Amino acid sequence: MLSAEISWRQEPGINHAYVWFSDGTIAGYRDLDTGNDYPTSPDYAQLMEHVLADWLRTHGIRCGPESSEPSPPEPPSGRGLTAWLARRRSQREHARAVAAHREWQLDHPSWRVPVDPPHAGWRDLVRNDPGHALWHRAAQLPEPRWFDFSARRETRAWTQGARGEETVAAELWRIARPGAWRYVHSVPVGTRGSDIDHVLVGPGGVFTLNTKAHPGASIWVGEHTFMVNGRKQPYLRNSRHEAARASRLLTAATGSPIEAHSVIVLVDPGKLTIRTSPRDVTITTRRGLKRWASALPSVLPDQEVETIFNQIRRSSTWI
C-alpha cells in the first residue's frame, strides 16, 4: 500500500512543499509563498489539501504572506482605571501568546522537516525513527512459544535494544532543542544491513553514537576491553570502526576533512567501572549524555555544522 510523504525545498526563489508517494510518484507541490497548489493530476488535489494541512500544522511551516507570530491586538480604547486594566490584560495575554509560540517553534525546528524532493536519488534520514533496524529485526522473529526461553531471550534482546535507542533519542532532543546541535537516527551504512544508531553534529564536533542497553548490568571498561557482567564484548572495536567509516564517508561527501568521534552510550547500567578511559572512544550513560555534550569545547562554527549536517542527512552519503 502506497503512503504519501512530504518534503520541503527552500532556497532563493523556491519555497515548495512536495507531496509524493512512497514509490516515487509525485502528486504535486504547493508554493508556500503564495499558498497555491500544483497537482500533477486533478485526482490528487484533495489528497494534497489533506496531507499538507496536517504537515503545515505539525511542523509550523508558514504558508502565504501572513506572519507566523501572533499579532498584537488592538488596544482597548477609553480612559480611566477600567480601560487601563483592560490594556494591561491585553498586553499580558499577547506576551503569553508570543512566548508560547516561540516555545512551540523550539519544539518544531525546520531542520527536522524532510527536504528530499522526489527523484532526488536520496532519502532524508531525518525521517528515520530510533531503533528502526532493531524493531524490524524483532518483528521478523516468529512468535516464541511459552516454553522456548531461548527464543524469548532473543526477542527481548532486540526489543530492549530498540527501546534503549529510543531513550537515547530523547536525550539527543534535549541536547538539540536550544538550536545548535543536529542529529539523525538509524543511519544505514553500505549495502549489507549495517547501521549507526545515531549521528550527532554540533559545535562540539561530529559523533557516532553506539547505544548499548544493559539495564542493571555490571560494566567494566579498560583501554582495549569492554566487559558486561564479566564477559568481553566487541563494543570498542565496533565503535572505532563506525567512527572511522563515518569520517571517510563524510570527508568524501563534503570535500573537507571530517573526523568523527565514537561514543558508547550505556542505558541504565547497574554499575559502571572505567579502569582506563579509551583515548578514542567516549563512554557515557544515557543520563550523562547532555552533561557530556554541554562540556565539549566549541570546534565547529554554525555554518560548518549546517554544511556537515546537510550531508549527514542524505542517505546517498552513507552508501
Results as ranks from 00 to 15, higher is better:
F207N: 07
F207C: 03
T208L: 05
T208S: 13
T211F: 07
T211K: 06
T211W: 05
K212E: 06
A213D: 10
A213W: 00
H214T: 09
P215F: 10
P215S: 10
G216W: 05
G216S: 05
G216T: 06
G216E: 08
G216F: 06
A217R: 09
S218F: 03
I219A: 01
I219N: 01
I219W: 01
I219E: 02
I219C: 02
I219G: 01
W220E: 13
W220A: 11
W220I: 07
W220Y: 05
V221H: 01
V221S: 03
V221L: 05
V221R: 02
V221M: 03
G222R: 09
G222T: 07
G222N: 08
G222P: 01
G222S: 13
G222L: 00
H224L: 05
H224P: 00
T225C: 02
T225H: 09
T225Y: 06
T225I: 06
T225E: 14
F226A: 07
F226I: 11
F226Y: 15
F226S: 04
V228D: 00
N229C: 09
N229Q: 13
N229R: 08
G230N: 10
G230T: 12
G230W: 08
G230F: 09
G230M: 12
G230H: 11
G230I: 13
G230A: 13
R231Q: 12
R231H: 14
R231G: 00
Q233D: 06
Q233P: 00
Q233S: 13
Q233C: 08
P234F: 15
P234K: 05
L236D: 10
L236F: 12
R237I: 11
